[in-house]
Nucleic acid binder design. Structure first.
Length: 844
RNA sequence: GCCCUCGUGGUGAAAUUGGUAGACACAAAGGACUUAAAAUCCUUGCCCUUUUGGGAGUGCCAGUUCGAGUCUGGCCGAGGGCACCA
């Protein structure tokens, strides 16, 4: 029998799909839509296994939904602005656009080889002018609505590369490229006012039923809503300062007040701008590392001012005012009221500077004489030593009561604070969307009028210079608007902006005039299922949610708030890591093993290789498997099958050569089965189909449930079971009246996973492959059941019975059966518990 | 430090949501076919027993229940997120 030649057959079907535009989608009001979207890739060169997994999962869903009769939108595009293009360009002296477009060509080809059901007519690329010109309009719209502003902000500044670094580009306080110690520098930057929507972004998370809880809690923590109040403290000691505002969540501990701590950037620092000691202190603060842990673990230090703050509940009490390194300027008001007994940071600070520690909350089971000694107590309890607040339950009741009193006395009021900060979108880079703003010679800025848009990126520029590349192109920077000359903004937009609305663009990708057509968006949006890595749980997903609200702000035509109805975060693809004698990483291709334990270098079989733990595939650790090689060697269907087989899609999966090979063999076996089935179906002699109908319907029931719940590893198991069933038939040459029909139902169910093979088999059977088979529930009902028999909770056997057997009859059958003699002979049935048609537990 | 998730054979994992633990696969061992190998197929899978059987068993310790991988409390371990957020 002929082997399955995946090369010619996969090519055949891919060509067929291309020529027939099988996956082309159009708006159709009469059909129910389904928008399936995977996070679009950055065109870095070649696709990796992570892409294979991501897009296979999405493709299984798309194809399943199409078969189920939905009008499915399944597009693909390129997140094609970004640093790697610029870096590659510098290294190879190549234009970022050429580099990017070449990569896109390669990767598109690779994706096509995977047999994905994508409507390629909707392909978009964020670095094309067609795309970013619309983004510039969004920017101006937001600018006009006051959702964009410019402010001075601290950034990570790399003094060697003369550029701003993102937090993740700072490694141990050094720039990831230059290795230079990163400085904190104040720069004027563009911001999106995302914090304006903080409250609704947080609250409306609750409506996202289709999102994993994990992602929702991550966003919740990120937004960080906290309830408390602001308090104005009266300050004495300098005539220029009479009040300092603080935010606190624990106003109820005000009687434990022992100092006031200010950020070094607090306006009060103006008083000390010429004080040498203060400047030294400030210098010391900026030196305590830039990594997050080092900041968190740094010793708490302070600088005592001449100021004193009054306790609003006790005018006689005054406390010292310090500058302290642990107070952040951009949260609250950059000032903290210190209550050492009930806040660990304040406690550490008070110990260091010998400040008063007064206990004002006691745990519920403690006496009133309870005193904080070794560490702060921040748990629940009762207020003590606090005059009119004493006896209240803390923190709940006591906080609300205290705020009420502060509001009456007009020294404070209720306030909700958020951790979320505005989104800085300025990047000092070339390869991004230009910001459509101009400056006059005085430095005041305005949006570029529509008729001068879009602002196009200049081509052929020299990137091998320090600093912002665009500002070095004098000709480009100058622009004349209505006869007046201006300078263009030379920063470009963060690439997260590009990906904050691309899913809208897919709805009308060819629209020249508008970013999208409203009717298209109304039909297709929201994305029904969004699929991608959990690493985007916060930023990308939050920014996209913000962007929808920003478009809809002061715009009654657009009321889409949540872009992604369903979200699925897939796990990573992992592989063992290999190191050679010189402690260098080695690719799996370079090593071999005879026994699965000892590994050696292929090129030198005496060179032992150290095997490390399995980790997510990465270029830096060289533990990658090239998808293209696998596709060429085993075929797309086999690779798709393997990537789904071993683990649930939300968990990490281990790459395994044996597993890959097994999947390949299974594809071969399915094809051979099909050939045998073809012959079997031709046979004259036929048997009654009841057994077959039962099997196929039970199978359909299982696989459909598992498909709907993303249990894709289990559907592979279901397919294996069905294979075994049909294999046995073909081996025993048992033909059924309905065999052709029911068998082709099985073939349709494997279509989402192995589309080429399924299409080919169905074609050879001369059967239609357009719709998912209907389930006939009648065959799910079994008239005979196997009931588990337990004595005292232990399984002792099973018994056959007809469905819906009465308890009395079942007991009678058990008593009559010799199997259970030894349990029933000398014992009486005391009691029993019966789970209908499934199990009986008899107590003796 | 705070928050979240997860602990099931040699391995990846299933388990109708409280009812037969280990489906399906990988690896291993044994067998069939073969001159042989590859491929393919079958069997086994922890402990006691030659078998029939029986026992233990889902990280550990308790609890609820006729019955717990599943529910509750405590502990141990792994992974992830946030991190001086007042």
């Amino acid at each position: 029998m002929e082997r399955y030649n995946f090369k010619t057959i996969e090519e055949k079907w891919q060509k067929f799909w291309d020529l027939n535009k099988t996956f082309k989608t159009q708006r159709n009001i009469n059909k129910k839509k389904f928008y399936c979207l995977e996070m679009f890739p950055y065109p870095s060169g070649k696709i990796h296994m992570g892409h294979v997994r991501n897009y296979t999962i999405g493709d299984v869903l798309s194809r399943f939904k199409t078969l189920k009769g939905f009008n499915v939108l399944h597009p693909m595009g390129w997140d094609s602005f970004g640093m790697p293009a610029e870096n590659a360009a510098k290294q190879n002296n190549q234009d970022p656009r050429t580099w990017t477009e070449n990569n896109i060509k390669t990767m598109k080809n690779q994706l096509k080889q995977l047999g994905l059901s994508i409507d390629w007519d909707r392909e978009i690329s964020t670095c094309s002018e067609d795309y970013y010109k619309h983004q510039q309009k969004f920017f101006i719209e937001m600018f006009n609505k006051g959702l964009v502003y410019k402010k001075e902000n601290y950034v990570n500044w790399d003094p060697v590369d003369e550029t701003v670094l993102a937090n993740e580009q700072v490694i141990d306080g050094k720039g990831w490229r230059s290795g230079a110690v990163v400085e904190r520098k104040k720069l004027s930057q563009w911001f999106f006012n995302i914090s304006k929507f903080a409250d609704e972004l947080q609250n409306e998370l609750d409506n996202l039923d289709g999102w994993p809880n994990k992602v929702k809690t991550m966003q919740q923590n990120w937004i960080g809503k906290s309830f408390g109040c602001e308090i104005e403290f009266e300050v004495i000691g300098d005539s220029k300062i009479d009040k300092i505002k603080c935010f606190t969540t624990r106003p109820d501990t005000l009687f434990g007040f022992s100092f006031l701590a200010l950020s070094i950037d607090h306006p009060v620092s103006k008083l000390y701008e010429n004080d040498q000691n203060f400047l030294e202190f400030k210098e010391k603060c900026s030196k305590t590392g830039t990594t997050e842990e080092s900041i968190a673990n740094a010793e708490k230090i302070g600088f005592k001012t001449k100021l004193k703050a009054k306790n609003p509940f006790d005018e006689k009490q005054t406390v010292p005012v310090y500058f302290a390194n642990f107070v952040l300027m951009d949260y609250g008001f950059g000032a903290v009221f210190g209550c050492p007994a009930h806040d660990q940071r304040d406690f550490d600070f008070a110990k260091k500077y010998n400040l008063n520690i007064k206990t004002v909350v006691k745990p519920i089971n403690e006496k009133d004489s309870f005193k904080v000694t070794d560490e702060a107590y921040s748990g629940q309890g009762t207020i003590i030593n606090s005059k009119f607040l004493s006896g209240l339950k803390a923190p709940g009741e006591s906080v609300i009561e205290t705020i009420k009193i502060l509001e009456e006395k007009k020294i404070g009021r209720k306030k909700i604070n958020f951790r979320l900060k505005d989104w800085g979108v300025s990047r000092q880079r070339y390869w991004g969307c230009p910001i459509p703003i101009v400056y006059d010679e005085k430095g005041s800025y305005k949006a570029i009028p529509e008729k001068y848009l879009p602002v196009k990126l200049p081509e052929n520029i020299n990137l091998n210079i320090k600093g912002n590349p665009l500002s070095s192109v004098d000709k480009w920077c100058k622009i004349e608007i209505d006869g007046k000359s201006y300078f263009k903004e030379t920063d470009t937009l963060d690439t997260f902006v590009d990906s904050s609305w691309y899913f809208l663009r897919f709805c009308s990708p060819k629209n020249e005039i508008e970013p999208f057509n409203l009717d298209d968006v109304k039909y297709w949006m929201p994305v029904d299922q969004y699929i991608g890595g959990v690493e985007h749980a916060i930023l990308h997903l939050l920014y996209s949610r913000f962007f929808m609200r920003a478009i809809g702000y002061q715009n009654d035509n657009f009321n889409l708030k949540e872009p992604f109805k369903g979200l699925f975060t897939q796990g990573m693809v992992c592989h063992e890591t290999y190191k050679d004698k010189d402690n260098k990483w080695r690719n799996p291709d370079e090593v071999e093993t005879a026994d699965g334990k000892n590994y050696f270098l292929k090129s030198d079989d005496s060179h032992k290789i150290l095997v490390g733990p399995s980790e997510s595939m990465s270029k830096s650790k060289k533990n990658t498997i090239d998808p293209e090689k696998m596709i060429n060697h085993y075929g797309a269907d086999s690779v798709r099958l393997f990537i789904l087989s071993d683990s649930p899609p939300e968990k990490d999966v281990q790459w395994s050569d044996q597993g890959m090979l097994a999947s390949y063999k299974f594809v071969q076996k399915l094809y051979l089965l099909n050939e045998k089935m073809l012959k079997l179906i031709e046979k004259e002699k036929k048997e009654d189909s009841l057994k077959l109908s039962k099997f196929i319907n039970q199978y359909l029931n299982k696989i459909e449930k598992n498909l709907a719940n993303f249990n894709y590893n289990v559907i592979i198991a279901n397919i294996h079971e069905a294979y075994s069933f049909f294999y046995k038939l073909s081996n025993d040459e048992i033909n059924f009246t309905n065999l052709k029909n029911d068998y082709s139902k099985f073939l349709i169910t494997i279509m989402p996973v192995m589309p080429h093979l399924a299409s080919e088999c169905l074609e050879r059977l001369n059967m239609d492959s357009k719709s998912w088979p209907n389930l006939n529930k009648k065959y799910l009902i079994e008239e005979n059941v196997t009931i588990v028999v337990q004595f005292n909770g232990k399984k002792r056997g099973t018994i056959e019975a007809i469905k819906n057997v009465s308890e009395q009859n079942l007991i009678k059958d058990i008593q009559n059966s010799k199997l259970f003699d030894k349990f029933l002979k000398e014992n009486k049935i005391k009691k029993y518990f019966y789970v209908k048609d499934r199990l009986i537990n008899i107590l003796i």
